[in-house]
Structures are given as C-alpha cells and as structure tokens.
C-alpha cells in the first residue's frame, strides 16, 4: 500500500484504516486529501448508503430514513473499529460510597465547579494510565506506541449519534479543571461547535451511560486507541458486610481492550487501580 508520510500520520491520529482507502495521488498513492476526506466528510460514503425515502403513508410497513452525515460516519467507522480489532473485556465492581460522599462535600463548597461522577472517573483513569502505560497505547502495525500523556476521549451522546471530544493532558489536570473542561467540551459537542483538533488525538476513551440507568455495557474501541472504559450507573444495592446486609453504592465498569496491545492481566491490573482510586477517593485530590 502506497501512502505519503503525512497521510500515514494523519491516518494514525484520526483512526483511519489506510487499507480501506483508494489513493488519488500519482499511481494510486494515498495522499493527505484521501485520508482527510475519509476522516472528516463522510459525504461520499453517506451518499452510497443513503436511500431516498419513497414512502406511501399507511401502505408501507416501514420507512427508510436517509442517513445523516454523522450516522453515515458512525456506520462507516464502527465495522473498521470492531472487526479488525480483537476485543476482550474485563469488568469490575467499584464501591462508590466514599467517592459519592466526597463528591457531595466538594459540591457543597462555594465557588467550586460542580463535579460529576464522570469527572471522578476521568481523573481516576488518567492517574491509572500513568501507572499502566501499556494500556495508554496504540497498535501501529509494526510497533505498539506507548503514550506518555493521557488524552482522554469522552463520548457524548447526541440525539442523532455520538461524538467523542478529547480532554487533553488529563493526567495533569485537577478534578476542578477536568469538570470545567469536560462540561465545555460536552456543551460545544451538542452545539456542534467543536474544532477538528478537539476530536482527534485521544489515547484512551471513556463512555458513560450511567445517566440512562444502564447497569453495565461494553464499548467498541476507537482505533487507534488501545482501550475504552464503559461506565454504568451508580446504583444503591444490598451489600454483605460482617454485620449483615447493608446498602451501598456500586458502579460496574467494563474495560474493552485491544488484544494486540495488551493481555487480560494487564487490563485487569489497570482496572484494579481505577477501582482503588475511586474507592480511596482522596487519592484523586492529591
């Protein structure tokens, strides 16, 4: 496969699989424009899939909705993310009682930004990634690229799809900074006001469906990232203690891992650390 150096770099960062592209450069060479078109404007792909809606109300039992550009992009990207990347999953239950309490205390402070459960998770993940660089990594064909900084993609649900803006250098940001920045990213994501560079370059992603009362789920990795954490709701459940049965707050988190990058134990150890950080949440403050 012939591709220019710049095309290769952009493809690696945007998660575009060069093998699936048709090069428009001399001799079929894949050039920057081909990759950017594939990554940014799914128009061509959308046109091929979109079916004009020819509907007779009351007669047809179904209707074909034309794909929005976002739906088309997701439709095009997901098989590339799921099929070629060998996924495996590890799930862990996290006791959120102390984190919950800490969050309430923090949110009672005047003049501080509101902290969400997801902000706590982002912070815990960023700190754990620094301890487990093998998870903050990407499969590059002939090498595994290990990142020194944690750029965390945060999936934001939209009415017609989802988008994953990137919180850069999360490892260097306090809870308050994470809270402010991720709220801004999410708001601009909903307003479709994100810049292109805010949508690429993540080294790890988090998808949180807790607000929809989802207990647990598993997510599809966003190549070229090596893993993604799927976060469920914090639920009040009966927990067995030495004294009997009590009520506790629990959260289920499932890590999807690219088996080419890491093995089960590595993913499990990372998840264990995320769990510990959330269960001893003062660690998130230091």
């Amino acid at each position: 496969m012939k591709a220019s150096p710049l095309a290769r770099k952009i493809a690696a960062q945007a998660g575009v699989d060069l093998r699936l592209l048709q090069g428009s450069g001399p001799g079929g060479r894949i050039i920057r424009r081909d990759v950017e078109t594939a990554a940014a404007t799914p128009g061509a792909a959308a046109a091929a899939v979109a079916i004009p809606a020819t509907r007779q109300p009351g007669v047809d039992e179904y209707e074909d909705m034309a794909l929005t550009p976002m739906r088309a992009a997701i439709a095009r990207r997901m098989p590339l993310a799921k099929a070629p990347v060998p996924h495996f999953y590890v799930t862990s239950e996290v006791a959120m009682d102390r984190a919950w309490q800490l969050r309430e205390e923090l949110n009672a402070l005047e003049g501080q930004p509101r902290i969400s459960v997801n902000d706590l998770v982002v912070r815990a993940v960023a700190l754990a990634l620094m301890q487990h660089p093998g998870v903050n990594a990407s499969f590059q064909g002939d090498a595994v690229r290990v990142y020194h900084r944690a750029h965390v993609g945060i999936a934001v649900a939209l009415d017609d799809g989802l988008i994953t803006p990137v919180l850069r250098d999360a490892q260097a940001k306090s809870l308050a900074e994470i809270a402010v920045e991720s709220r801004d990213l999410a708001e601009r994501a909903r307003a479709r006001k994100l810049r292109v560079n805010e949508l690429s370059g993540a080294t790890f992603s988090i998808s949180n469906l807790g607000m929809f009362d989802v207990t647990e789920f598993s997510a599809i990795i966003n190549p070229p990232e090596g893993a993604i954490l799927a976060v469920g709701a914090v639920r009040r459940v009966p927990v067995v203690t030495d004294a009997g049965v009590d009520v506790g707050r629990r959260l289920l988190a499932t890590l999807s891992c690219d088996h080419r990058v890491m093995d089960g134990a590595m993913g499990a150890r990372f998840l264990q650390d995320v769990k510990r950080l959330l269960e001893e949440p003062l660690r998130l403050l230091v």
Binding site: S4, P5, L6, A7, K9, I31, R32
Partner: peptide, 8 residues
C-alpha cells in the same frame, strides 16, 4: 509535493 513531514 511528496507530503513529506519534518521527519523525512
């Protein structure tokens, strides 16, 4: 023209 980067 070749879309080289600083690396090349």
């Amino acid at each position: 023209t070749l879309e080289a980067t600083v690396e090349e």
